[in-house]
């Protein structure tokens, strides 16, 4: 922290607040990624970090470098726009792939089940037991 000595009070407070709140929101999203049960619930959680967390931390960086140098620094808007527009696209393609894989596996399981000759296990209970070819 060599350059922070000449920073005045208001930009320092704003930078600190935005930085800590952005990191906390990102951690909440990551905890959701850790704790939710199914994949389709889990895919929602990290978007909290990619939208609010990225926006807060990039705004903190903009405030800090604008207060350090002369004039406003707006580079970080590039990161905000890029991440907020690209994350839903990637996750939508990923959910498409996951739906395709789930459907493929369920169809395969159904076909295996039908090949064994057991259409409904409840109907099979009263029938005389015949030795199944293993």
């Amino acid at each position: 922290m060599s350059a922070a000595g000449e920073l005045s009070a208001l930009p320092a407070v704003l930078t600190a607040v935005f930085l800590v709140s952005g990191a906390a929101v990102t951690l909440v999203g990551a905890l959701g990624l850790l704790r939710l049960r199914t994949f389709y619930e889990r895919v929602h959680a990290p978007t909290l970090g990619t939208t609010l967390g990225t926006a807060f931390i990039a705004i903190a960086s903009m405030i800090y470098f604008s207060a350090l140098g002369t004039g406003p620094v707006l580079h970080e808007l590039l990161i905000i726009v890029l991440v907020i527009t690209t994350t839903p696209i990637g996750l939508m393609i990923l959910v498409n792939a996951a739906l395709f894989r789930d459907k493929l596996e369920n169809d395969g399981a159904l076909q295996r089940h039908a090949k064994d000759g057991i259409a409904d296990p409840l109907l099979d209970k009263g029938a005389p037991q015949e030795p199944r070819a293993e």
């Binding site: 903190a60 960086s61 991440v83």
Partner: peptide
């Protein structure tokens, strides 16, 4: 448990690494 979970984790990991790099930039100025 499955491959798509790992891809979601990877997505979250690189976004967090990017935010950590921005924080390093604020620390070093």
């Amino acid at each position: 448990p499955r491959a798509q979970d790992r891809v979601v984790g990877f997505d979250s990991l690189y976004v967090n690494a990017m935010l950590l790099l921005l924080t390093f930039g604020i620390r070093t100025g």
